[in-house]
Design a protein around this nucleic acid. Structure first.
Lengths: 201, 201
DNA sequence: ATACGGGGATGACATTTGTCATTACCTAAA
DNA sequence: TTTAGGTAATGACAAATGTCATCCCCGTAT
């Protein structure tokens, strides 16, 4: 029996996938979690064989969960599922020791198969995303520039961003100016939208 | 046998829900569609009893699909499912003749039950959203103000918005100023975020 | 040792935005 | 008929934003 933990903040998809997986003879769903923090706690308690993690979750995202479990639960393998599968995200996921990666644009039936493969020791990365990842879309922004972009992703004013990062307002404006030049867009909001699309933030 | 059409752009949830519904003795999934336009075509061809429509879809959203089917297929009832269930959206949905409305924060097993109730002639609206809708969250913005907000939702500059709406730049700034005051936020981006959250645009 | 890139800051400048007063036109209530 | 309210525009002003040059401090690769 493969013991599986499922984490996804969207109840409908979580319960649907859990129900489907439970129908498989060799799979047992041992936990359903609504966010990343809960997933970490439950995983450490139940020590499942496989964690099926949604990428977009409150508190901790799927990759962050995998990253934490890597050190504490060496026997547990993680499979990350995401709505918008961007190459940048795949890179981050693989760096965090994720064993499987598939987009929600795949059919639910395929999940069981991926789980079995990963259980058998293989790594499974969705072929389409893997191909995309080769046509390198790495972020041209530095860590700090990304921090600034993240801090301003909800339309915060320069002064707010400066406060939350403990920077001078002028410095923030310098970073934003550099970001706009690198991404070749005209406004902060467009920069945020572009970076979100590409999976850089 | 209740004949059901499912439309959702997210393959994983669509296939999972379809598989689960197919397990029910009295339900038959006759079509799976990836977008609204396709849903309209298939519905008119197959004349299902119930259309289970995702709200967030490319081309036509779930409410728009229901609106079209209302005139052409009077016997077909529509159930709309959405990720972020906002009162404003519910209002729009009911105005379009939708018979059922439930958020994805409900479990997948409940879908079959809702389908049966709607099939029996009842209207089903998720109780939580219905309660929210009473604490009126209608948009305080005028049609034109919404146009401006929509035109600028991707961080377009004032001059761009003005061009795309054939307005003077100053007029656009006046509208934006009014929007910020009404929504009590400090930047365009925050106004866009708020309006999107509330289902106003 | 030194050149380079990242992080952090300042000051100056030009634009863009947001605010406000004021005007005008039109339509639908009262 | 008067009164609102929505749409559209101008002009003026203040504040925020984007751009640039220039400076400093570090660490590391040459």
């Amino acid at each position: 029996m493969i013991r599986v933990l499922i984490a996804d903040d969207e109840v409908m998809i979580r319960s649907a996938v859990a129900a489907l997986l439970s129908l498989e003879d060799d799979i047992e769903v041992v936990a359903e979690c609504a966010d990343g923090a809960q997933a970490v706690v439950m995983a450490e308690k139940l020590k499942p064989d496989i964690c099926l993690l949604d990428l977009e979750m409150p508190e901790l995202d799927g990759v962050q969960v995998a990253d934490r479990l890597r050190t504490t639960l060496t026997a547990t393998r993680c499979v990350v599922v995401t709505r918008h599968a961007r190459p940048g995200v795949l890179r981050r996921a693989l760096a965090s020791g994720v064993s499987g990666f598939l987009p929600k644009s795949r059919s639910a039936n395929e999940i069981a198969e991926v789980i079995r493969r990963v259980m058998a020791g293989a790594r499974y990365v969705d072929p389409e995303i893997a191909a995309d990842a080769l046509s390198d879309e790495r972020s041209p922004l530095t860590e700090r520039e990304l921090d600034v972009l993240r801090a301003g992703r909800r339309g915060e004013a320069t002064s707010q961003i400066a406060r939350s990062l403990s920077l001078a307002p002028g410095t923030v404006r310098n970073y934003i100016s550099a970001i706009l030049a690198k991404l070749n867009v005209a406004t902060r909001q467009q920069a945020v939208l572009l970076a979100e699309e590409r999976g850089w933030i």
